[in-house]
């Protein structure tokens, strides 16, 4: 039982990081842009939040927890949205190749983040690691009355607020995309930009907004990773990038529906951590289990392609630059 609870908890921690990345990416892809810069954007979000609160915590005697949280989230959102803006400018206005631009953004984001992450560690002292204790504990604070409810409390209420924010954003994204006219317009842009243009929808504006907001949400994944997952410090080990790619894979697994991303993210978490709870595994056979999330993504891709269900396909104009046809 104890093993099961810790597995679920580990899966939720893990799943929350990729759920943010995934929900942001779903919004982006619904506008017809495949942003492979998600890992880089999560890096940018993580380092911006860390740097922001590091400066704040270092400059005041008694840092306020609420202000810490706000600074972390705002810094992350702005930095990530700026990353998205660069991508949007290149792919929409300059019509650069989306795949190449996205991959470049990932390389850029990880480079920038690890450079400043290393610098922050140096600033924190020669042998020390950077820590932002006030912010991190604010992010990890649980609601005590509910968290104390035995097994239920441990399974559902033993997490920081970001876990619930991720679910809320996934639900809101779904409501917006499927149940509002603005969402319908955005999906039209991703499915058939010519039709959108002829119907009087501003394709460029919709794409820019979707990409920047989507990137901002993806960036929260980086915040959660830095503040909660690794408890307010920085590690130059490339973990964010690994999670970022899983977020992209989760978009496919969720068949571009953000509600599916909720359970999909936790499922990925369970699959990823399962090796810890299966007795008798050697170091090398553990690695095979770590592969599972990717394997199920491939299976989902194969199955949806075989069934050829039109509702489970990517947006029809995904990855294509749009420009008005001229003779």
């Amino acid at each position: 039982m104890q093993g099961f609870i810790t597995l679920i908890q580990a899966a939720v921690f893990f799943g929350t990081v990729i759920m943010f990345g995934c929900v942001g990416e779903i919004i982006t892809e619904k506008a017809g842009n495949l942003n492979l810069g998600v890992p880089g954007i999560m890096y940018l979000g993580g380092i911006a939040s860390l740097a922001g609160v590091f400066i704040y915590e270092g400059s005041t005697e008694h840092p306020n927890a609420a202000i810490c949280v706000i600074i972390a989230l705002v810094c992350a959102f702005v930095a990530s949205a700026l990353g998205g803006l660069v991508y949007a400018f290149l792919t929409i206005t300059l019509r650069a190749n989306q795949n190449v631009t996205g991959l470049t953004l990932t390389i850029f984001g990880s480079g920038v983040a690890n450079f400043f992450g290393g610098s922050l560690n140096t600033l924190a002292g020669r042998f020390e690691q950077i820590v932002v204790p006030v912010t991190s504990s604010a992010f990890r604070a649980t609601f005590a009355p509910l968290a104390g409810l035995g097994v239920i409390g441990k399974l559902f209420f033993s997490y920081g607020f970001m876990v619930y924010l991720a679910i809320l954003l996934a639900v809101l994204a779904h409501r917006f995309l499927m149940h509002t006219r603005k969402g319908l317009n955005l999906r039209t842009v991703g499915e058939n930009p010519q039709a959108a243009d002829a119907a009087g929808i501003n394709v460029t504006k919709n794409k820019y907004l979707a990409i920047c907001i989507g990137a901002g949400i993806s960036g929260f994944g980086g915040v959660y990773y830095v503040m909660d997952y690794i408890k307010g410090t920085w590690a130059n080990d490339g973990s964010i990038e690994k999670l970022g790619w899983l977020a992209v894979a989760l978009v496919i697994f969720a068949t571009w529906k953000s509600l599916n991303a909720i359970w999909g993210a936790y499922l990925f978490g369970v699959l990823y951590w399962m090796y810890m709870y299966i007795p008798g595994l050697t170091r090398s056979s553990q690695v095979i289990f770590k592969m599972l999330p990717y394997v199920v993504t491939i299976i989902v891709l194969v199955v949806t392609s075989l069934k050829n269900s039109r509702d489970k396909q990517p947006p029809a104009a995904l990855g294509l630059a749009y420009f008005r046809e001229e003779r």
């Binding site: 006219r181 319908l184 317009n185 999906r187 039209t188 058939n192 039709a195 959108a196 396909q313």
Partner: peptide, 20 residues
């Protein structure tokens, strides 16, 4: 200029009355 994965009704309203 239609969106394949939308219903007939959804195709009617794309781009208009965004605030409704």
């Amino acid at each position: 200029k239609l969106v394949d994965v939308f219903t007939a009704a959804e195709n009617l309203v794309i781009g208009i009355d965004s605030h409704k």
